[in-house]
């Protein structure tokens, strides 16, 4: 036989379940609040949006004097993980020339001391047009590439 909870205990638990349950279900009603990402309640429709045929990724490359290039991974400029690094780079580009120039310098700063970037003379932030099917089934070559910003690597 189990002992019974007090009435106050029951109210405490039911109230908690009701409040949290309602809060969690709020995103279903988009009349008052547009979908957006947040914590601890997220309005973000993960994996639900339509993707365009042509993706337009923003990325960064290091360039050596002989023209040889290497990709720069997000770990160079953030410890916040791949998605955070990707978002920060894209946001810097969206914010305009000054922000993207500052970001380019931040990438250069992150490259310092890394042997894989030894001798690199320039960093470029680029945007590409990529058709996913071609990218994965044929050659990994973008349909179009545009340089958005560039900066010199200084010691």
């Amino acid at each position: 036989m189990t002992s019974e909870m007090s009435a106050a205990g029951r109210i405490y638990q039911w109230a908690g379940m009701f409040i949290v349950g309602v809060c969690l279900l709020l995103p279903l009603d988009t009349r008052f609040r547009k979908p957006h990402d947040d914590f601890p309640l997220s309005w973000y429709p993960m994996f639900a949006s339509k993707r365009p045929d042509l993706e337009s990724p923003v990325y960064a490359v290091a360039i050596w004097p002989d023209g040889h290039e290497a990709k720069i991974t997000t770990g160079t400029w953030t410890t916040g993980g791949f998605n955070e690094g990707r978002t920060q780079l894209a946001n810097a580009v969206k914010q305009g020339k000054e922000a993207s120039e500052r970001f380019c310098q931040r990438i250069v700063k992150g490259m310092r001391g890394r042997s894989s970037f030894k001798g690199a003379e320039r960093v470029e932030i680029r945007i590409a047009k990529i058709r996913k099917e071609d990218w994965f089934l044929e050659e990994k070559v973008p349909e179009k590439v545009r340089v958005l910003r560039g900066c010199q690597v200084t010691e």
């Binding site: 994996f47 993707r51 990724p57 990325y59 990709k71 791949f82 990707r86 780079l89 996913k132």
Partner: peptide
Amino acid sequence: NLLDQIGYDAVYKDLLS
């Protein structure tokens, strides 16, 4: 759509990771 989402993520991983 699942394939599109996987592909979108993978393109970025090819370029930035």
